[in-house]
Design a protein around this nucleic acid. Structure first.
Lengths: 245, 245
DNA sequence: ACCATGCTTTCAACTGGATTGAATTCCGCC
DNA sequence: GGCGGAATTCAATCCAGTTGAAAGCATGGT
């Protein structure tokens, strides 16, 4: 089985070199695949969660609602991401998964994870590292939500997105495709669609960004990094303590 | 080595029964111990992080500051908690650790973790589960910060605290000791000390809580659970997939 | 070409929570 | 028991972001 076609392998081998066997273990997770149209719900909060998903292409996001309808998007998923990892210790899913655009997902059962943990110490360490790294990222988001103004939050989000996309596309420039609607961005940043609109317009006037359809160019990345005290959590990872295989 | 004195063992064996050997491995982490006075910084964000800490007694918290001084407390630590786990994949600490009151901490080197991962599959699974559970909890906090009003956030925090304290004190009633100052609570919930004060007074008037010194009694827990759509993430954990030893 | 639909932008009124500064109360400590 | 510093409370004012509604723009389907 050639592993070059696996998004997951591409993403994870950015952090540590993987043996042929480990690549195959990961690639196996992407054996099945299912296409979902834009704006579809893949599963809902409260559903029994038997499967995890690897994203093959397209964007999706996970969210929770309060009973009165207020919505919080908690994670944005890109190709190569594993969806649902945080919920494996729970019987039921805590979030709902919705596609932003047409998405290809590879479902695999929780039990495959189990297998990896038993067979590959190196992949186990990598999975643990990813879980811990995700914690650090969530803490960064928390800081943004708790203490940053609207413009700072938007800046933080854009920097975070571009950092993540750079993992798999090292040649990436300063321009990203941003398929989410402003309402979705608002639900991610704890703001309203109206204020997101205002903030984008303001940031464009001030020369931080340039927009063209769903493409967004970051013009003053350094200024935005300074503004938000941004740290890239994706580029590097301390893998020196990993067991060898 | 008797394990009954280890806070960590007490906390973790709530989730899964541990072998004598595993208990000893955990208890070993609490061999060294250091007392810190109230309001002391144990380490700072940016410090090289070589050690993790087990809390033996007392409360502490981790926070980050923005360059202009805005502060976000990101985690509150209780006895039995492991501090610094999220940062093990990073060379430098992302947060500062400060004590709330007199605290006893047991420092141990990152490498001890390494050892556990190599020797005990069951503890590895447990550690991974804890990391994933913490992610779910952070997502709950994120939801509170993004979409809840001040009173809802305070309610959420109190419910979360009491749930955590119940893990190790099953006989706990509806009253908790809350040694944090209102400014600290504000920095945790993304509000201001003044508004926390107002909210507490309001909640006491409305009969949700009763305060007496640093003791706080929760009078209408059900109402608060309903208000915040609260889910206890600590009581149970799906350990059915754990490897046996 | 046309309409339906959903997204973005704009507008104006409103409000929850922030800010500031001063006044109290609390509490440990000499 | 009284002093000093911290924590809390009070009151007045202010503003970032909300709300709701309406108007402009795209896009795609028939």
């Amino acid at each position: 089985m050639s592993s070059t076609s696996s998004c997951l392998v591409t993403k994870l081998s950015h952090y540590v070199s993987l043996s042929e066997a480990d690549c195959d273990r990961l690639a196996k997770l992407e054996r099945a695949e299912r296409i979902f149209d834009a704006g579809r719900e893949v599963y809902q909060g409260g559903d029994e969660n038997k499967d995890l998903y690897v994203v093959k292409h397209g964007w999706a996001f996970s969210f929770t609602d309060l009973p009165d309808g207020r919505r919080q998007i908690v994670k944005i998923h890109h190709p190569g991401d594993v969806i649902g990892f945080a919920d494996v210790t729970l019987k039921h899913s805590t979030t709902t998964l919705r596609t932003v655009e047409e998405v290809c997902l590879c479902p695999f059962p929780k039990s495959s994870l189990d297998e990896i943990l038993r067979e590959s110490p190196k992949l186990s360490a990598l999975l643990l590292s990813i879980a811990l790294r995700d914690q650090v990222v969530l803490i960064d988001v928390l800081r943004a939500m708790g203490r940053m103004s609207a413009q700072e939050r938007v800046s933080y989000m854009l920097l975070d997105l571009i950092s993540r996309l750079r993992i798999t596309n090292p040649g990436m420039t300063d321009t990203i495709r941003l398929p989410m609607t402003q309402s979705q961005i608002a639900d991610y940043l704890g703001l309203t669609n109206v204020y997101i609109s205002k903030t984008f317009i303001r940031m464009e006037e001030d020369g931080y960004i340039h927009r063209d359809q769903h493409r967004l160019q970051i013009l003053r990345e350094d200024a935005m990094i300074e503004l938000t005290d941004f740290h890239d959590r994706y580029a590097d990872m301390d893998t020196s303590w990993f067991p060898q295989d």
